[in-house]
Computed example of a mutant assay.
Amino acid sequence: MTDGPLISPDQLAAELDDVTVLDVRYLMGGPPGREEHAAGHVPGAAYVDLDEDLADPPGAGGRHPLPDEQRFEAAMQRVGVRADRPVVVYDDWQGRAAARAWWLLRHHGHDDVRVLDGGWTAWQDDGHPVEVGETSVDPGDFTVSADKQMAVVGADDVLDVDVLIDARAGDRFRGETEPVDPVAGHIPGAVNVPTTENLDERGRFRSADELYATYARVGATSSGSVAAYCGSGVTAAHDVLALAAAGVDSALYPGSWSGWITDPARPVETG
């Protein structure tokens, strides 16, 4: 087991022969990152498509519902994930897509998963080797566990959470703008901690003490229930990851705002 959910580029370089690395490069609304992976990646890293492997099709569960368990299991086996081998995930979105993969693997029973702090940019900036072309890996043996390791809240109980965190940018939280979903605003009672607040000026996660202070300011500590949501359930995992790095357990509302607003009877708050 690891001491925390993050790993530095130098640490990964030292452990590279002993871990399974997954490249989850993704751009919301843009093309998949497969071409970027082929152009250069962490040596040995297999590519994971967020839309295809880490989410179900859009619907009542939002824009990125949690993936069907059997399909997720098959995808992780295809990219070489093993139950007895640590996994490191990275992206080029400051950890937002990688956090989704981290959360899903942890949720479905893998005990040792970390996110590369700073992602692809940090790996290159720190001078580590780059591999090009397609990656061939041996199939893994990862199986989805019936015992879920990460907490989830649904639409029926999300309003009962003591501290509900909205991970979107402040203008979307307040309902001043909504570039993606058909309704603007936030879930009543939520507090706003944008994912940008988890990061320093280099795009790497702030220290555990800094992260704890950031979330304590909105009341998110170990003294009550905490959950996070975002637009579609992807970037909220970034806040869950930051809270984990700070030593605070939290749940994910997978449907998030895009799922919440599929029922017009659910209340909406602005400001």
Rank of each mutant, 00 (worst) to 15 (best):
A101V: 02
V132A: 04
G118Y: 09
H128Q: 08
V132G: 00
L104V: 00
G118R: 15
A97V: 13
G118S: 12
R106K: 13
E134G: 04
R114K: 15
W93F: 13
G109F: 01
T135D: 02
R106Y: 00
S136V: 07
G133K: 01
G118F: 14
D117A: 13
D126C: 13
G127V: 03
R100D: 05
V137I: 14
P129W: 14
S136F: 00
A98Y: 02
D117F: 01
W123F: 02
H128E: 02
V115D: 03
T135M: 09
V137S: 06
R96N: 10
D138C: 05
V132S: 02
R100K: 12
A122H: 15
E134F: 08
P129D: 13
E134D: 10
G109A: 04
R106I: 00
D111R: 05
H108F: 06
T121E: 14
H107V: 12
G109Y: 01
H107G: 04
A122R: 05
L116H: 00
R100A: 05
H128A: 03
W103P: 07
R96V: 15
E134N: 00
V137Q: 10
E131Q: 06
Q124W: 07
W93N: 15
R114C: 10
Q124H: 11
R114T: 15
V115T: 08
D125L: 11
R106Q: 01
T121W: 10
P129G: 09
W103T: 06
Q124F: 05
H128G: 02
A99H: 05
S136C: 07
A99W: 04
E131S: 09
V132H: 08
G95M: 13
H128C: 01
H110N: 11
Q124Y: 07
A98H: 04
W103N: 01
R96D: 08
V115P: 00
H107P: 06
V137C: 12
G127F: 00
V132I: 03
L104K: 03
L105N: 02
A99M: 02
V113A: 03
R114G: 07
L105G: 03
V113Q: 08
A99L: 05
G133T: 02
W123E: 06
T135F: 11
D111F: 04
V115I: 14
W103R: 02
V132R: 15
S136K: 11
R100E: 10
H107Q: 06
V113L: 14
G95F: 06
A98W: 04
D112S: 12
G109H: 04
T135L: 04
G133H: 01
R114H: 12
D117R: 11
W102N: 10
V132P: 01
E131T: 07
H128F: 09
H108V: 01
V137K: 14
A101H: 03
D138A: 14
A122G: 12
T135P: 01
H107Y: 09
G95T: 15
A99C: 09
D111M: 05
W102S: 02
W102Y: 08
R106N: 11
A101G: 09
L105K: 09
R114S: 15
D126M: 06
L104Y: 01
A98I: 09
R100H: 07
W103H: 01
G109I: 03
W102H: 13
T121K: 15
Q124N: 14
G127S: 04
D111L: 10
W120K: 00
W103Y: 12
V130T: 14
Q94D: 13
T135V: 14
Q94N: 09
A97C: 11
H108R: 08
V113R: 05
